[in-house]
Design a protein around this nucleic acid. Structure first.
Lengths: 207, 207
DNA sequence: GTCTATAAGAAGATAGAC
DNA sequence: GTCTATCTTCTTATAGAC
């Protein structure tokens, strides 16, 4: 890994723990294993490091989303997969969504960083909403529209179904970001949540 | 209002916008209308101001919760009220929950501040989870347990019902914290969410 | 590309007059 | 309780040797 990349990684780690303004360039340098002035051979300012982290995420976002089929606009292509496999597919989908978002080192740190910095300006506000609210809802919505059309669910607005499915997962995710020790509890709640979600939305009632 | 109280208010406003470490004591002083050194006649340090804000919230919390019957442990006493009024009571409850949390100046600022500072230490993590996850869920859960017992809903785990009811509201609330311009959209989603929630959980099906 | 030295300024906090 | 003046330390950033 290049020094430039190391700087981005260590900076994001620190920003995710304490926020941009609480971290000084000397700490980033120390984490990388160099002295502060050397940073300025790679980035022209502290703000430039932060911007580079954002740029990196933006260019990786579609790739990441595609990797797990979580966000993005490939949902229509994915829906048949979900609709045709075992009936616990929803539970699997939710748990995997949760686990990936929570444990992926890069995704997790970036989300915490963005959580801390989300109020700093409207660009960051929009980015947060897009990545952790709007895109997942659009994706889930497409899936539920497909499943509904296939006749597996009662007739209901797929957007609201997506909200019902995703919001509890989102809340448990942000909870585990601040309290990782509650992951087990969160996973169990998510599993029960999805089972009940299936029960109330499926045509044949409870399972 | 005393100068001491003014300091707490202005400090919280600034902390809610940019976080503790990005705000300097001179800015707080300027917002209050005094010079920085004068602050130290009221608080012994910048950290002391932050701690005082937390203390103030802790001592107000039960009072606030009681005011709107949103959190706390009075749920059992409140449930009959909810169960006996018109059938749109759930929508009203959700909308009011949302509106109060979003628009109450003190509650709103404190929540944003805590959102930014939640990763700083475990005390703040626990405080966030308690106020915005655990307590609301416990309260809602008690209500749904009561409504279920009254026979209005299908037989389902009240904890999961509370999660289904509250999580979408929580997600829309945190969205509006960073994007207040989306309140209208959020309110409409919440209304549709609750109507569908009622539809899938009520014994007689859709309304 | 990394270092030491250092500039230049910001920030938290104190002293002491009024 | 508020002010001005000041101290001290921290922090970002640059200069210039290697």
């Amino acid at each position: 890994m290049t020094t430039k990349q190391k700087i981005l990684n260590e900076a994001m780690t620190l920003f995710a723990e304490r926020g941009y303004s609480a971290v000084c360039v000397g700490e980033i340098a120390e984490a990388v294993g160099i002295k502060a002035p050397s940073l300025y051979k790679h980035f022209k300012s502290k703000q430039d490091i932060f911007n580079a982290i954002l740029d990196e995420m933006r260019s990786n976002y579609d790739k990441q989303a595609a990797a797990l089929n979580i966000n993005g606009n490939k949902a229509e292509g994915d829906a048949p997969v979900f609709a045709l496999v075992s009936e616990d597919v929803l539970v699997q989908m939710g748990i995997e969504l949760f686990r990936f978002f929570l444990h992926d080192d890069y995704a997790s740190k970036f989300r915490k960083m963005l959580t801390i910095e989300q109020f700093h300006n409207s660009e960051l506000s929009m980015l947060y909403s897009k990545q952790y609210v709007d895109d997942p809802l659009v994706y889930q919505s497409t899936i539920f529209a497909y499943i509904s059309a296939s006749g597996g669910f009662i007739n209901a607005d797929p957007n609201i179904m997506a909200l019902h499915f995703y919001a509890p997962i989102y809340m448990m995710l942000t909870m585990c970001d601040r309290q990782p020790e509650r992951e087990k509890e969160a996973l169990q709640l998510i599993e029960e949540h999805i089972k009940q979600f299936r029960a109330v939305y499926s045509k044949d009632g409870q399972t």
